[in-house]
Nucleic acid binder design. Structure first.
Lengths: 345, 345
DNA sequence: TTGAAAGCGATACCAC
DNA sequence: GTGGTATCGCTTTCAA
């Protein structure tokens, strides 16, 4: 529990000098600096953060807001943010709460007001008007990841393009009956990014004049959600599409499992494309558009730090790449597939 | 940015009285109390945490240490902890870093020293001797979840019993060739809980005189890990067991997927039991031993709060229940199964 | 029941 | 370069 006063005494200098020597701000002779540092180490001195915060106004803490922890994307982003923050010796205050929940409201009304952090990273969140307002008059830098871009800095993939490319890949293989799988049942709760994906899908379908073959089947955005929806969708041979664009890999994998159980072979009888490159993608040979959420987390931290150092830094939306990873879940719509589908009709 | 001085002025009282009225400590007349509270609300007053911490010594923050974020168990625990903390208006400082990593070392040497939190919840962690030492001389209460019980308070299921029950279930169905699937390849890194499960499995096998039919196949403790290991294990018809106890549901599900791909029917040709009751368990009809990590997280918070209120509270290990959930991934070893296995031999 | 004043542990300004 | 000192915003004796 040694304080800076102890360090100063041990080094035979004043508190002021000790502080300067330790923080590196201001002039200190090389000799005293080393002497003070030595004393500090000797005594195991660690500055009391609350005291530092009180006087400097900086907390060395970043607040991170996530809707939940059990979806791959969020967990990955959080991991990346954590790493990047750790490197910079920043603490991470976690606030996870689903949109529209009491906990979420509580968070916004209570915690954000506590000016406890120097900045906020909001993951996959489309804030409500009220939340947005609070975030803004919070007066500290905000960076959003994979979500709504509220005029603040943001980082995400180009969701619209990703889904478009996925769809075009399928169209290029000759598919016309392509269903978009996943996204919240009652559209309202569909996350911002997911909605953009759906839009990208429709854009591609329309551009190819295949609007008629398109359909959106909602589902919870989880593997079981994708599984359940796919069982229903694929169970009916009459209306079954020849290809699927899934809102994300978790849903895609659920669909593949459903297809297998129904005796529908992927990719021979059904092509599936996902978005994410989830850790499960490989074991299902899933063709997908890759994104690296942990990288996005790191980028978000970088953006935030830039604004912290120079508040004048303009907000910017960084789009991370999302390349197509070809595996083995898609195939050309050949005669065999057509035949099978036709027979069903 | 209203401070308590502003509130006091607005209410026509001194800072001292305002503080008492707001914190609820000390005598204040009912009249002034409401007047102060009103003024505070009016001005949108929020106490500056660093100032409060500086004088009270309490940070209203709990540090949570997890090995990583993308395993179901950890994410669930973290979610439960977050909720319970939020209710109590505590902040959650997240420290996730894999054991033996630089980040992990950094965490322990640097962050824990920052006396930034009132207590620590360590999830699924078997601290090294050095880490343990730091955690202890950190001098603040520590509660561990699902991991090593360092004489501090702890909460977990009875891993040994869970695996034993799972194994006995299989033995009761007539199986003798039962393999334990999962756990780190080179035993050393096997988590404390996982090691206990393996021990419980062996205990049951031995008690049934079936030691000879037992085997431990290591694998990464993930779905792809279980998948990969199961493909190898089940691919060889000569040595294939008739039943599997998986270290957790993720591994169990990976094994089921592998079995299906190999044309091995579950449960007709292969019985599988998991541990967890993961959100995927249902869609695979997985029989498993249920645990509720989020509850464990909540319990951990309760234990911690008790110690915070009264440091004399003795540490205690709370065991949460882990009931057997019967679904449809296990079946009696009947003639059919035996026949199939025999043919293979 | 209330108010004045003394810290909590650091930083930062201003003389020296 | 270095040392006194005011200060950050609040809680908490101690008197009144």
């Amino acid at each position: 529990m040694a304080g800076i006063a102890d360090v100063a005494r041990a080094a035979g200098v004043s508190k002021a000098t000790a502080s300067r020597a330790l923080t590196g701000a201001g002039y200190v002779s090389e000799a005293t600096r080393t002497r003070v540092q030595h004393a500090a180490k000797e005594l195991g001195y660690v500055p009391t953060t609350s005291a530092v915060s009180l006087v400097t106004g900086r907390t060395q803490t970043i607040g991170v807001v996530v809707p939940n922890l059990d979806r791959w994307f969020f967990a990955q982003v959080l991991g990346g943010v954590q790493e990047a923050l750790l490197e910079r010796r920043y603490d991470l205050a976690l606030y996870s709460a689903p949109p529209e929940s009491d906990a979420r409201r509580e968070m916004f009304t209570h915690f954000l007001a506590r000016k406890r952090f120097d900045g906020v990273i909001a993951v996959g969140i489309e804030p409500t008007a009220h939340e947005l307002e609070r975030l803004v008059d919070f007066g500290k830098p905000v960076v959003s990841v994979g979500g709504y871009d509220a005029g603040t800095s943001a980082v995400s993939i180009d969701d619209h393009a990703a889904a478009r490319i996925a769809t075009e890949h399928l169209l290029g293989l000759g598919h016309r009956e392509i269903t978009f799988l996943g996204g919240d049942p009652d559209g309202r709760q569909m996350s911002f990014g997911d909605a953009r994906r759906l839009a990208g899908y429709w854009a591609a379908m329309e551009a190819a004049g295949a609007r008629g073959g398109g359909r959106h089947i909602p589902s919870e955005v989880t593997m079981p959600g994708g599984y359940g929806a796919a069982v229903e969708l694929l169970g009916d041979r009459l209306t079954r599409p020849t290809a699927l664009v899934a809102v994300c890999d978790e849903v895609a994998v659920g669909a593949i499992i459903a297809a297998r159980r129904l005796g529908i072979r992927v990719p021979e009888h059904l092509s599936v494309v996902g978005i994410d490159d989830h850790e499960y993608a490989d074991m299902f040979s899933l063709t997908t558009l890759q994104q690296k959420p942990d990288q996005q987390g790191r980028t978000a931290v970088r953006l935030l730090m830039a604004q912290l150092e120079d508040p004048a830094t303009p907000g910017s939306h960084t789009y991370e790449p999302s390349p197509l990873i070809m595996r083995n879940s898609t195939a050309a719509l050949d005669d065999a597939t057509s035949a099978i589908v036709t027979i069903g009709r």
